[in-house]
């Protein structure tokens, strides 16, 4: 070891967790190719087919009564089910993370149920519960409040499917933040509601926003459960996804893909909104995440 020199420059400049340039390049290319095949290409394809007969034909198909009804229905569903699920999700996450009680693990499993149950099964459950032949459903129909094949059933199905999104985003954040800040607010004399609005809600707002956006995207795109529950009556209970499917089955590909493009754009707008908010509030984001 006598000829070892300590005056020369070190040969390794990178830290232990850093990969070599070649490895990095391979990973980047791999990710890029994967994203192109799985995400970008299909998205582009939707727009290409939608515009195959020109912009006018595409717009004309969107201006039909059925298309407009489907768009209106889908937006209505999202407008009703997303706020409700935001409230339920916050309540569930609050309950799970701020209190200790028996059966907590069971409740968490229950929240995850929509992720694991086939959505067609979920739709069938709602039909069985509220269909004309069921006790509850029969009574409701007799009194003029049909659930299945009507807006309430679609909203129930959508809420069932999208329920986990908000709660799942919030639970880890709220567990990590603990209860100390809430307790501090209580000792300073704040009431429960005041603690929620001045301490809990500001601390979870980004997770909540993210959960709501995911929930919204899913609510607008839901097909399985809604297809079973809605009965797909055109102009009444046909949502955008079910209408797209029906148009596609009838070989009206321009109409189907035009509507699909609108649905995709709604999702993209949601994502852009999230990114814009993140950029605008980057400094606040930093202060709430650290500390």
């Amino acid at each position: 070891m006598s000829n070892t020199s300590f005056t020369g420059s070190p040969t390794r400049f990178r830290s232990a967790t850093e990969e070599s340039a070649a490895a990095r390049l391979v990973m980047i290319v791999f990710a890029f190719v994967g994203l192109t095949i799985l995400v970008f290409a299909p998205l582009v394809a939707v727009f290409v087919v939608a515009l195959a007969d020109g912009v006018v034909a595409s717009l004309k198909s969107l201006a039909t009564r059925d298309a407009r009804d489907a768009i209106r229905l889908t937006l209505t569903i999202a407008a009703i089910s997303v706020p409700l699920n935001a409230i339920f999700g916050v309540a569930a996450a609050w309950f799970i993370t701020k209190f200790d009680f028996r059966g907590k693990a069971f409740l968490i499993t229950l929240i995850d149920l929509p992720f694991s149950v086939s959505l067609v099964v979920a739709g069938l459950c709602i039909v069985l519960m509220f269909g004309t032949n069921s006790f509850v459903g029969g009574w409701l129909v007799a009194n003029g409040y049909p659930i299945v094949f009507a807006l309430p059933g679609i909203i129930l199905a959508t809420m069932f499917v999208t329920f986990p999104f908000v709660a799942r985003e919030l639970i880890p954040v709220m567990i990590e933040q603990g209860r100390a800040e809430e307790e501090a607010a209580l000792t300073l004399g704040a009431s429960g509601w005041r603690v929620f609005f001045t301490v809990t809600l500001p601390n979870i707002r980004w997770a909540l926003l993210y959960g709501v956006l995911l929930c919204n995207a899913r609510a607008m795109g839901e097909f399985g459960a809604v297809a079973v529950v809605s009965g797909k009556i055109r102009g009444q209970t046909a949502t955008m996804p079910t209408t797209i499917e029906m148009l596609y089955q009838e070989y009206l590909s321009v109409a189907a893909f035009s509507l699909a493009a609108v649905l995709a754009m709604l999702a993209l707008v949601t994502l852009l909104l999230k990114t814009a908010l993140e950029i605008r509030h980057a400094d606040q984001l930093a202060t709430t995440r650290r500390a």
Binding site: A180, E181, E183, A184, A185, T187, G189, T198, V199, P202, N203, Q284, T287, T288, R290, A291
Partner: peptide, 14 residues
């Protein structure tokens, strides 16, 4: 009305 100082201080981070 007890002034309470918590172990990790629990300051409101926002």
């Amino acid at each position: 009305r007890a002034g309470f100082v918590f172990q990790s201080y629990a300051l409101f981070r926002h």
